[in-house]
Design a protein around this nucleic acid. Sequence first.
DNA 1: CGAAAATTTGACGACTCTCAAGTCGAGTGG
DNA 2: CCACTCGACTTGAGAGTCGTCAAATTTTCG
Lengths: 256, 256
Amino acid sequence: MNNLNEFERYPKTGRFLAGRARSQLSEAERSRMEALVAETEVLEHGHRVIARGQTSKHSTMLIEGFMLRTLESENRRHAVSFHVPGDFVDLHCFALQRLDHNIDCVGVAKVGYVPHDAIVQVMRDDPELARLFWFSTLLDAAMHRRWIMKLEQLTAPCRIAHIFAEIWERLEMVGLARTDGFDTPLTQIDLADMCGATAIHVNRAIAELRKTGIADFRRGRVMVSDRERLKEYGDFNPGYLYADAPSVVDIAGPPA
Amino acid sequence: MNNLNEFERYPKTGRFLAGRARSQLSEAERSRMEALVAETEVLEHGHRVIARGQTSKHSTMLIEGFMLRTLESENRRHAVSFHVPGDFVDLHCFALQRLDHNIDCVGVAKVGYVPHDAIVQVMRDDPELARLFWFSTLLDAAMHRRWIMKLEQLTAPCRIAHIFAEIWERLEMVGLARTDGFDTPLTQIDLADMCGATAIHVNRAIAELRKTGIADFRRGRVMVSDRERLKEYGDFNPGYLYADAPSVVDIAGPPA
DNA sequence: CGAAAATTTGACGACTCTCAAGTCGAGTGG
DNA sequence: CCACTCGACTTGAGAGTCGTCAAATTTTCG
């Protein structure tokens, strides 16, 4: 899986489903996919790609950067999931028409837009590609489910470890991780929104991870010396990410 | 919207997306949908419709009864969502191939099976119906998102109120609610699995709802005297259920 | 009627929130 | 180059929610 090459050949969509069902796409389909992106744009930090209740005539491919899917309650922002390059972040807007949540940039992001008319065409004449589009929207649901479970099961430090492990895994699938960790534009406040805790408590949780040597988080740079230990601490089992090559853990049984 | 009539004409699929996008289906599509169900079956309480990691050649329409979508951790069962009649409970299995979670009956359930081959045919020659299938799987994701938010935002009594309000709303959409509440096969233990609390704490939360007169739950029967008060207490805004007729609240703005 | 499951109650401790300060780091203007 | 400012990060104390352990009571059903 040479991500670099793939991303050179398909600079706008080369990371779409990389490490997952992308291997099922023929070269013709990859080209077609790349051609779907009508135009690209660079968005600034904090830009709201789509707001709750809004309809849209196109969907957005995240090419570079980081985004959060958010809901707002009276006094707080809740991040229900995050997105990395290669994610078709609001493809579900095509089927849902209006969205029940917002999608916000964290840091600068580069995106490409795919007109919904073009997706209709794909549904008409390439059921296989259409099925993969469908698949990609269901990955979000699987991540939501896992997160519901982790919210109920884990304390704050373990939740953070789980989030770190997931970001790392997903960045790795699209060729954007380091061997000793990864970089994100996330602040501790963003992490608080992601794990349903206050920023103060998240700060203490991060301090705990630092103290125990499980992970170090400073200004968006996550450093991990023992990846297995991080995974174990966060009870992270990647099966729900539907990667192509199941890890050893998964081969033993169904995805955990 | 005469659910009764619809359910007489389409006894197996008449509740599919009732109150939501069902209105977009032509009579021909409703007939076709009904014909997709190859065979029906009655399942006993506790039956596992599909287990984590399993693949399947068909998907399951819930015709009568109640189901939970569950994940299991070391010592606990987590119910990440529930299903009422008319839900195509494991349609996403078609696009995902293997599932990341289980689907379990609560009480006796009647189901119908739709072969995946038949769904492939629908994708080929009825993109509109296919799009509604896609839509129906995304409703689950929207409910997951809302639940993540509520887990982070609400205390146990409020979570229970939210769950009650959602079950009531969804049963109503398929014509199965009473005017003063609804009936379910759920136990307090199931509710605990659904709201991420222990059965003991759920019991105290229910006692609280009973004491304040917001809701009374006894042996699966939920009685509510003031529905608006229940909704307010559980901070329930139904926009995320994508009902056809937005409530007054929703008209003012995007779905809450 | 008896057994199993579901529900209820009480005491204590752990996790997390709120309120209140205080420190550190990057970018700006003098 | 330095003072300033704003946001992000850090620390401490007290209160509330919820989990655990232990046990009693009620309901269901064979």
